[in-house]
Structures are given as C-alpha cells and as structure tokens.
Design a protein around this nucleic acid. Structure first.
Lengths: 212, 212
DNA sequence: GGATTGACTTTACCAGGTTCAGTCTTGTAC
DNA sequence: GTACAAGACTGAACCTGGTAAAGTCAATCC
C-alpha cells in the first residue's frame, strides 16, 4: 500500500507529511465512529491529532474528506480496471466483472462484511456525508462517461446516459445490500442475492443502452 | 395560484405570512440572478426584504431553498400526474407523457425557454445549488420509487432501480438540453431533439425494467 | 554556512445556521 | 371594549466549517 519500498535516502519530508495526513484521517475516523460525524468538530480532531485546524484543512479540503480518504484510490482502481480490459470487451462488461469480483472478495469499495457496517452507519447518520458520497459517486459517473465516450460508439449524451444507468444499478444494489447487513441478515445470503442482482441489472443496462 | 378566493373573514395571518415568504423568495432570487448565489449573503437578503435573518430561516430551512422555492409544488404535480393516470397505464408511461407535455408547453419544470437560462446559469455557477438540486432530485426519485412500488408488480429494490433509471434519463436529457440553450442553439431544434431523446430513453428504461 | 523550500502554526476573520428571550400583531372570548 | 393566547417576527449572542495572512521551524540544496 505504501508509496515506495525503494526510497533511498530520500524525502523524510514527504514521509512526515503522509504520516501526519494519515494520523489525522485515522483519529478522525475513530472519533466519527464513536460519536458520529456531525458531533465531532474539526477543532477537536485537530487537537486529538496534535495539529492546528489549518493543518487539517491543508490536508483535507473538506471535513468529509477525512472520512472518505480512500476514494481517490478507488477512482484510480476503476479507471485501471477499465483501461486494461481485454480487447473487444465493452466498458459495461468490465464494470460488471469488477463488481462481481468485489462482491466475491468482499473488497471494501463495493463488497460487504459485517465489520464494514460501522462505516455505513456513520454515513447513514449524517447528511453531510451522504451529500459528499453522492458527489463522489457523480465524479465516478463522469469518469465512466468519459471512458464510454472513448469507446467511440456513441455520442456524449448517450455515454452519460449509460454511465448514469450503470451507477444507478450499482448504487441501488449496494444500498439495498448495506441495509440488509445493518439489519443483521446473514452475509452469505446477502452476497449471493447482491451478486445476482448486479448481474441482471447490468445486463439490462447493456440492453437498454443499445436500444436507446 | 392563491390559496382561496373564499376566505370569508379568515386568516389575514396566513396571507401575511405567505406574502412575507414570497417577498423573501422574490428578492433573493433577483439578487442571486444579479450577483450569483454565493456572492449574496443571507444578511443582505434579510435586509433587502426588510426582515430579520432569523425570519428568513423560519421560512426557508436552507439558503438554497429560497432559490428552489417552487420545488414542493413540482413534487405535488408529479404525484398528481401519476396518481390520476388512466387505468392500465404504468408509472413510466405517465412520466413519459408528462415529460413530453412539459417540453411541448415549455413548462418551467422540465421545459426550456431562452429566458429560463438565467436560472440555470445561476445553478451552474454554484456548488451549493448543484448539491441541493441533486438532493431535490433524489427526493423525487424516492417518491417515484414509492409510486412504482404501489403498482404492486415488483419489489422495493426493483422499484428503486427503475425510479433511478428514469431520473437518470430525465437528468441527462435536461442537462444536455440546458447546455445547448446556454450555448445559444435555436430552441426549436433543441426541443425537438430533447423530446425525441426522452421518448427513446424512457422506452428503453421500460424495457430494461422488464428485463431486470 | 547560508539561502530556500515547504509543512505547520497563530490569529483573526467570514458566512451559514441555531438558540433564546423576548416584542408586536392578530384573532378570539368575554 | 378589554383581556388573553397564539404566533410571526426581532436582536443579539453563539457555534461551526472554512479562509487569509504572516510568520516559525526543520529539512534540503548549493
């Protein structure tokens, strides 16, 4: 997960910076988990991380980003998955395969485990986090639209439409599954159903996209 | 548009309250249009409407709601349109017909006119407004899902999925069309294309929903 | 050794939003 | 007509996220 095992003598500075960022994110995530996102102030986080408020905002543009601090990596992952797909496969196909893999491997991004449910509980309890989650989803949707557009088969509007439909399917499947996890349904049953739903609905999207 | 022509001696109070609310919304909308949403402070609005800041927040829970002050009516309209649809018609059918009507009649909600473009320009320039617009769209999506669920043909997850696909189609069509209006394309060409797109994509949604 | 860079700090400030303790208006009951 | 209750509205203080400016201190470069 770390930047480089082969940092010769190099940048203590960068390491320290990364460490500070990580410390802030960790302490913040813990506090959010304990008391809820809105009940924790940025000042408290700064104090707990032994840093000034301004430093917090130097590392994270918004308070919400301390919670979603791994999203940039997620976007990277999606982009890579799609760009390295086998020749002749569509973007939708690559997305479908990625989703299936995530569910099977219980990947943090789209997969589920009991112990992830705290994360989602915090989101469910905070309007600000839901707004930011939606925004991050939109960014991914835009990225997806670009990649679909790059296939060259359709115009921009159609690419956006397809990307929106894909994200709707993913969001719906994920949210429903998360709700079931929080209701203490058995994970295995949830995952089986979740995977089946994603397969069906993404195939339907592919059809609809051809039709529209 | 007014509450009741047959208010005997009754509620001057309510009328005054509604008038205050309207005055605030009007003055705010004008100021937003002139200087942009973020550049206008709530204090300025309060002063211009000759009212205290607290009063502003008594009428509108958030600053953004002064701008989107007609959304509650829009939701009402959607619900009525769907509930009063001819027997045997699906929710998607009713939505499609409503969208077509709005475009044809250049209804403020989903239709387009040159002079609406100021409205959309203000939204395009403000992150806060975009967030709120998305949120309002989500509320409508949830309403739509409920109505689809009430048809009794599908489970809740499927209803949400369908509602999400519908809203994606509408959002995509509307945003693209708005962009063209702002780029000064001729309205008639835009509307023709916009209507055709909505028809195609909503039919595709209906197909996909059956398939999924 | 001296200059430069860049992470971090302190202080002060802004704007949205809430709380509270009222005042002023209006409809109602006697 | 007077008393009273409800409720729209007010003023001021306060909280929180977020920004600006100016400067401190350690690591790096030459």
């Amino acid at each position: 997960m770390d930047a480089s095992p082969d940092t010769p003598t190099a940048d203590r500075r960068e390491r320290k910076k990364a460490a500070t960022r990580q410390r802030i994110a960790d302490v913040a995530t813990m506090m959010f988990g304990e008391r809820g996102f809105d009940a924790v102030t940025v000042n408290e986080i700064a104090e707990a991380a032994d840093v000034s408020k301004v430093t917090v905002f130097n590392h994270f543009a918004r308070k919400e980003d301390m919670f979603f601090d791994r999203m940039p990596q997620a976007r990277e992952l999606l982009a890579q998955t799609i760009k390295t797909r086998p020749k002749g496969r569509t973007v939708v196909w690559a997305v479908r395969r990625m989703v299936q893999t995530h569910i099977k491997e219980q990947h943090p991004l789209l997969g589920l485990r009991e112990r992830y449910s705290g994360f989602w509980q915090v989101v469910a309890d905070s309007r600000a986090l839901q707004v930011r989650a939606r925004e991050l989803g939109d960014e991914i949707e835009a990225l997806l639209a670009e990649l679909i557009l790059a296939e060259g088969q359709v115009d921009e509007r159609h690419a956006r439409l397809t990307a929106g439909w894909i994200m709707t399917a993913i969001r719906t499947g994920l949210l429903t599954a998360v709700a079931r996890v929080m209701a203490d349904d058995p994970i295995e049953a949830i995952n089986k159903d979740y995977a089946a739903f994603m397969k069906r609905s993404l195939i339907a999207v592919e059809f609809a996209a051809k039709l529209a």
